[in-house]
Amino acid sequence: MSPLQLCLAFSSALFAVGLAGALARSNSILVLLGIELMLNAANLNLIAFWRFSPHGSPATGVVFVVFAIAVAAAETAVGLALVISIYRHQQDIRLEEATRLKG
C-alpha cells in the first residue's frame, strides 16, 4: 500500500469508529463526540490529499483544515449548549428521554 492509501485507510477506520460510537451510545455528549471523530476523519483526508497530490498549491489543504476545525468548534459549542439545555429541562441527557418534540 502506498502512504496515501494508508492515510485514507486510517481515516476510513476512524470514521467508522465515530459512526459506530454515535449510533451505539444513547448519551447525547457521546453522540456529539462521535460526530467530532467523523469530522476529524474528514480532516485527515484533506491533509492526506494535500500532502500527496502531485501538484498541489502551497497551503490549500491546511487552509481547508483550519476552516473545518473552526466550524467544528462552533458546532461543538452549540451542541454542548443544547445538551445543557436538555438537561435543565428534563434532568437527563439520554436521547431516549428527549422525546418532547415527538409527534
Binding site: M1, S2, P3, L4, Q5, L8, A9, S12, W50, R51, F52, S53, P54, H55, G56, S57, P58, A59
Partner: peptide, 15 residues
C-alpha cells in the same frame, strides 16, 4: 481505497 488507482509513489509533498 484499496481499488482506487492512486499514485503508487507520490511526489514529495508541497511545503
Amino acid at each position: 481505497v484499496a481499488r482506487s488507482p492512486l499514485a503508487a509513489s507520490p511526489a514529495p509533498g508541497p511545503a
